[in-house]
């Protein structure tokens, strides 16, 4: 007579893939919110992105409030 037994095992190993994904999100997110001065949109918009500064304006107040140097 056999019956299935449920066991709960705690695993500590973190998949390296998950770490890489999170590290990328960290770097890109920090750059967009804290540092972009038109760099990202310049890929599609060209030089005008450095004058319009869409991302800078979008994140402007958060930059100040979170302590990033802004301008």
């Amino acid at each position: 007579m056999s019956s299935p037994t449920q066991i709960t095992k705690s695993t500590t190993q973190v998949p390296i893939f998950a770490i890489i994904v999170l590290a990328l999100i960290f770097v890109v997110g920090l750059f967009v919110v804290g540092y972009d001065q038109g760099h990202i949109f310049s890929v599609v918009l060209g030089e005008s992105a450095y004058e319009n500064l869409y991302i800078h304006e979008l994140t402007h107040d958060m930059r100040h409030a979170a302590g990033f140097p802004c301008h």
Partner: peptide, 11 residues
Amino acid sequence: AGAMLGTSMGA
């Protein structure tokens, strides 16, 4: 921007 920064720091 807060949601983006939070996601980044959360990562």
